[in-house]
Every structure is written in C-alpha cells, then in structure tokens.
Nucleic acid binder design. Sequence first.
RNA 1: GGGCGGCUAGCUCAGCUGGUCAGAGCGCCUGGUUUACACCCAGGAGGUCGGGGGUUCGAGCCCCUCGCCGCCCACCA
Length: 887
Amino acid sequence: MLDKTFDPAAVEPRLYAAWEASGAFAPTDDPGAAPFAIVIPPPNVTGQLHIGHALNNTLQDVLIRFERMRGKAALWLPGTDHAGIATQMMVERQLAESGNIGRRELGREAFIEKVWEWKSRYGGAIVQQLRRLGASCDWSRERFTLDEGLSAAVRKVFVTLHKQGLIYRAKRLVNWQPQLQTAVSDLEVVNVEVNGSMWRIRYPIEGEAGRHIVVATTRPETMLGDTAVAVHPDDERYKDLVGKQVRLPLSDRLIPIVADEHADPEKGTGAVKITPAHDFNDFRVGQRHDLPLINIFTPDAKLNDAAPEKYRGLDRFAARKAIVADLEDLGLLEGVDANRMMVPYDEKSKLVVIEPYLTDQWWVDAATLAGPAIAAVEQGRTVFQPKVWEKTYFDWMRNIEPWCVSRQLWWGHRIPAWFAPDGTAFVEETEDEARAAARAHYGRDEPLTQDEDVLDTWFSSGLWAFSTLGWPNELKDVERFYPTGALITGFDIIFFWVARMMMLGLHFMGDAPFAKVVVNALIRDEHGQKMSKTKGNVVDPLELVDEYGADALRFTMAALSGQVRNISLSRQRIEGYRNFGTKLWNAARFCQMNGCERVDGFDPATVKHVQNRWIRGEALKTWRAVTDALEASEFAAAADELYRFVWNVFCDWRLELAKPVLAPGGEAAAETRAMTAWTLDLVLKLLHPMMPFMTEELWEKTASAGPPRDSMLIVAPWPQLPASYADPEAAAEMALVIAAISEGRSVRSELNVPPSARPPLLVTEAGPRERRILEANTAAIGQLLRVDGLRFDAAADGGAVPYLAEGAAFALPVAEFIDLAAERARLAKELAALAGDIDRTTKKLANPDFVARAPEEVVDENRERLADAQAARERLGAALKRLEGVG
RNA sequence: GGGCGGCUAGCUCAGCUGGUCAGAGCGCCUGGUUUACACCCAGGAGGUCGGGGGUUCGAGCCCCUCGCCGCCCACCA
C-alpha cells in the first residue's frame, strides 16, 4: 500500500542513480531513430545553481525526456564554461583572502595551475546540482570549454577566420578595465546613471590676450590629452575662431580649434574639447582632422609621462580633483554644474569605471558574419520563441560592431598567434606551423613569441553547438546531431551567446546551430522584484528541492514558463504544485485500494460503460493537447492541461463517479478497474517529463499489479492514441451528468459514503430540476439516491430508460435541502442572471444589423442561447416556487 | 535620445487569428474529517479588463491618444 504522501528525499537519489546506471541518458544507437540534440547553455564552472538555471534546465529536461520517450535518439549534451574573467577574478580573490601572493607575483603558469586546482576541487558543484533537479544529461559526454577537443576547435576557428580576413589585429580604442587591465567587449560594459558634475573650463585663445573659449566636460582630467577644440561649422558664436589655436591650460600646448559636425551647439557651451585617445567620439573626430593621439594613462589608469610632471602617477580620480583645483587657482574655471550622466562600469563587478583606452587587440569582423545569421532568422530557418525576441536580435545584429576578442587575462584559450621580432604575427594552429610560416616568410628561422593574450570566453562558447560534438577532429556526431533541435536559454545572453553561435555556426557548419531558440523570462520574487543578494529575496533552488521535492519545483518552472518577460515565483505557487503531486499520488493510492490494476491485453477501444468511454475520450484530448504543447515547446500549456486533467477530470469526476460503479457487485466494475488503471498509466507517461521522480516511482510501485513492466518509465514509449477513442455520445451524456450533479449540492460528498451509512434523508416531491438530475444521471448515480418513484420504460435498443414519475416521492441527501433559504437565494440570483441574459440576447436578435450582418452560426448560437435561457427560467422559476412551498 | 514590453479579481498571472472572455492558482469568507488525499472536499464574496476617444452589428482583444511601471540599446561633451 502506498504511503499517504510521496517522500521525494528518499526516492529521488535512488531513482536518479538507477536512471544513470541504466544508460538511459545516452541517445539510443538505433540507426532508425531520428536524432534530437540539445546543448546545454554551459554554466560557469565557478557557478552555483540558481533559480534561472532551474527554469532553463527543467525545460530542457522536459523536452529531452519527451523526445526520448518519442523514440528519438535524444542527446542532452552537458558541460561547463571556463568563464575567463569571472573565474580568474574569483581565484584571485581567494588567493588574496587566504593571504597568498597575488597573480602577478605567482606568475602565469603557477596561477593557471591554481585555477585548474580550484576547478578540480569545486568545478563539479554545478553538475551535481543539475543532477538533483533530475536533469537527464548524457554525462558521459560532459564537456568543458578548455578541454583539448574544444581548444582545438577554438584554434581552428581563429586561424580560419584570420586567413579569411575576418579576424584582424588593430590598434583602436577599446573598453579598458583598469583593475584587471584587460580589454572587454561592448557587451561587458554597463552604463549606469550617476550624479556627476560638468565643469566649464576656459581655454585661452592664442594671440588674443584675454580672450578664451569655454569648453564643458565631465572629465576634466582628460584635458591633458586634448589635441583640439571642436565647434560646429555653422555655429556663429565661434565662426571667427575656427583655424585659430588655444593654449591648453596646465599642459601649455597649442592645439587647434576645428570645425566639426560632432560639436553640438545645443550642448554644453557648444565648444567641445577633443581627446582622441580617451573618448570614442573624439577618436573619430581626431581621424577626420588628422589629430595626434595622446595617451595620458597607464594601464591601471594612472597618469603617465605624457602628463605634466606634477600629475604623473596620480590615479585618474585624484588627478581630476587636482586639475579642477589648479584650474580654479588659475581663474580658468568658469563654473561647475551638477549633472546626471551615464558612466560606463564593468559589467561583472559594477564597481570599476571602464576607460576608453588605446591598445592593440584582435577583432572579429562581426558585421560580415552577421549577414547569414540575420538571413537565417529572416527566412525562418531558426525561429525565436516567443517571436518578439527576433526584433531584439535583428536590431543588434544589423548594427553590430567589430567584436574585440582578445583579453589580457591568463585563464582562457591562448591566442594562436606568434610574433616575430619585427612585430609580424603568424597565426597558426600550432607553434610548429607558425614557425614554418615564419620561415617561409623570412627565408630563415626567427625567434617567435606567442601572444600573451587569451580569447573572450564567448569565443569558445560560440562554438559550443559543434565543438562539443567533436568538431573538428571527429565528425560522426556532428553529422548526426548538428543542427541541434532547440536551444533553451535566457534573454540576457541572446547577444553574448545566441548571436555568436548563430554567426559561427553558420560560417563553419553552413547551417544554423538550432532550429528553434526558446527564450526564457527572468525569474523574480512574488512581488515582481528582481532577486538580489542585497534585497535578500534570492531563493535557492536546491533549498526548494529539499523542501518540496524536485518534481514540485520542476512542475512549477514548467507551469510558469509561459510568462514572457518576467516570472513571479512564490513559495505558495510551488506548494500548490507540490499539492498537485500529492493529489496524483493519492489518486494512485485510491486505484491501488480499489484494485484498479492493469489488465494484460486490455483494449480501451472495447469499453462499454459510459464512464469508461467518456474518460477514454477525455484522455485522448489530454494526450493530444500535451503532445502538441510539448512539440511546440509550450511547456506551460502542457503543464496546465495535465493539472486540469488529473485534478479536475480524473480525480474530481472520474474517480468520484467510479466509486459506486466499483462497489461490490457492480456490473461494470471489472471494466472500470482496468480502464482506471489504464488512465493512470497514461497520466504517468504524459507527466513524466515534468515530474520524472514521482511518476517513475508510481510506475515502479504499480509494476507488481498486473502484467510486468518491461522497462523504466524514462524509456517507456510516448503513448499513441487513435482518434477513434473519442466518443461524442459518452461525452455529451457525461457532460449532462456532471452538470446535473454540479447543480446538486453535496451530492459529491455523498459519493464518498456507502449507501447504508448515508445521513437521514428528506423525502420530497419530484420537480423538474430533480427529474432532470435523476433522469440524466440514473445510470451513474442511481444507487446514490433512494428513489421510490423511479420507473423504467423500454428503450428502442432493448435497454431501459429510467424516468421519474411526476409527483413521485423520492429522496435526496438531506444536505441538499438543509438550507432552503440559501437555496432560494441561489435560485433567485440565477433567475436574475438569466433575466439579464434573456434581455441582452433578445435585444441582440431584435437588432436588424446583427441578424443581417453577423455570421449565420453566431445568430443561430444566440437564438439557441435565448431558447435555453427561457427554458431555464421556467424550470428555475418552478423550482423556486416549489421551494417556497416547502420552506 | 531610440526601441520593446506591461497595466485584467486582495496577490501573481491566463485570455490564440475581435462574437459565452470576464478566467486560473493563491489569499479571504462559509460549511464539511467514520477508510485516496485537510498538501483534502463542497460552496461564496471580489473586477465598469489603466484613463479618454475611435473603428465595428459586436472590443481586454483592432486604431489613435494620454498616463503610469519595467526592460534593452545609445558616444552625449
């Protein structure tokens, strides 16, 4: 006998181990099986499972379990990302905390050794946590972005793109992270609005004593690198100054006043200082006017030797203070205003201000690669779900900038470029090849040194969809599983990851890496607030698994996944779905107690009893809805349908109505038992992708009753139900029964009580309402109610049609009439509602426009509704009158 | 500055191509425990679908407009 509740803590580890040991997670070798692969969005090795992972990986698992049951060669390929910056920062911080020497003192090799050490110790955490969720990944293929195979892919891609001219080295302004002293990409910069100041500074005009031009700036320290002042060509105020020079304060350099469209007469003073080495706009202005670039910063953003001596070595913010003070002393500070402004911060720490900085870096020509990636989505070869994200994708892709892929870090893929003493770079997959290339170039051996830099983490994850399958060395699985079936991921990495996978996948494989991108919303707390450590509203998915079980969390994730932008998660919600599991568990328990065992060779097509024909049709509908929903990756729709079917159809009605049928001596009892067991089995299968543990457990627990199970549920075939299972007649009849019973209060609680033990009955007379209930329903609930006036007429098919003689005495459960006043009020209210309905419909039908112009079926529908309402009014009116008599 | 999304019961949200669309879960109120389930059952209260205009025989659902809220992008001195 099943316990009263399911005990996830006891069951989950055991079942997971059994699944894993059985090899069920690996794709079948059956050559006839259609391949279906999902590559996991690789979490950072340093990561801990958060609620977003729980959502994302639950959906992937639902999908992969579904496709596996459907007989496909389903592969869910797991792995982790080395996460260059994040991991390096974390290990560095730990070194600092434990009082070790820093990275630089340690040296590159020793430091990387430390990181690997750290990875081997803690890197397994997140994959273990995925197992707790029930993720059915093929762990035998687990990958890491720094694995040798994936590194080979990185080298090959880099070299190929370089040879194709799509990767190049260039000296440009980059987003410089001065603390880590590395370049970062545009995406790794976040702009934050802060309170700043705008200083107005007088730049004296050379040769016109006492005259000056006032420039406005939020970053006065950069004036040390100014090489011009720009004004708009049409700006009358400054027209005569164009071509003249100013004497740059503090530096005492002469710089020109140039006319450039960039200067906006509306902004600041209309005159803008130009610092080409420290501002992206000024860089472009500088190029137009052939201005020199003066870099005034060291890599850690202190002033360098290009600055006047007194400022050298000062941090940029200290320098700002000093410069403002000095300007004030010189009487060159015209004023200062408070200013709300956007300041670029480092996306990871959100603490370090990013500095535009002139360096040599490697760039990917993203605009060229973006073309096919845009076309693939335009042509629908890859679709985003929900579709609104396509616009985001297009907007970014169509305005894409060159991608800076080099990072001045140690943890990552070292760039396969070797420099000769003259600075020439030889980009090859191996040092030997580089050497050979150099020899060919120079006609002799030259000493080569490899580029110190590593690649952006997203460069290697951009290859994930095919590098994990073995490319470039082993193509068997690439051929089999690429393109993958679907990518399920969060919207926050559409640019970082999805876009790059599209570009690189199309370029190297010729095909988009996935047919569909399912984009998840961001999970927030129950009030729609973003989860954050400072707010203290972060929920740990593993705690939720401990508390409610993995199935409850998974089902919650699936059910909430329909929310497009934000998902509000509350414990109540999870509790509700945990309760759903318990409900199913108890339904199974009920089946067990009532001997509803699977019967060998049982064919639902042959059932006779109306309830059984009905539930067969309902099961068909649900099977279809769930299958369609999962096929369309509409996880929420599948979850809702199953919730509704299990609770509101199977438990509320099927099992309740079956109770009298299952009573000893019931004619249809055997058939009903078999049908109930069959339905439960179907539910277990349909629910398995979302609630794998409980369903597998029930599958196992019901194995001994009936014919033996041939396999675990995880590899059980997805059901195939014939359309002929539908039975409109039974559906109509049962709809009537359900409606009738619904009208009678407490009838359903009566169903729980054996006839002999029912409470006292009140004898009354049959009226239209009671007749309707009983006549519609005799077969199903006849034995519930003691009926004296029940008669039977011969039916055309030889059966018997029950009817209630007018005025016959009959009995209803006393609860039905226990509160006559309430019943009267209810009827009165219903009548009022009907009156409104009748009124509205009558008016509608009286409207000639409506009758003439609305579709025929709509008009007919309204006519029917009116007739029904009028009939109901009569019926209810009579019932009310009768009740008044009784009261 | 540009773009996108949202504003539907106390809360969190469903409502697909305009014609039972005014819904669900939770919360709240009332009543109910002899053997599937109190993680339960039966019932109830509660919304002029952000405001205003328009199109239509008919609009949460289409158009215009206003108002909030959120997100993304952007070089604004």
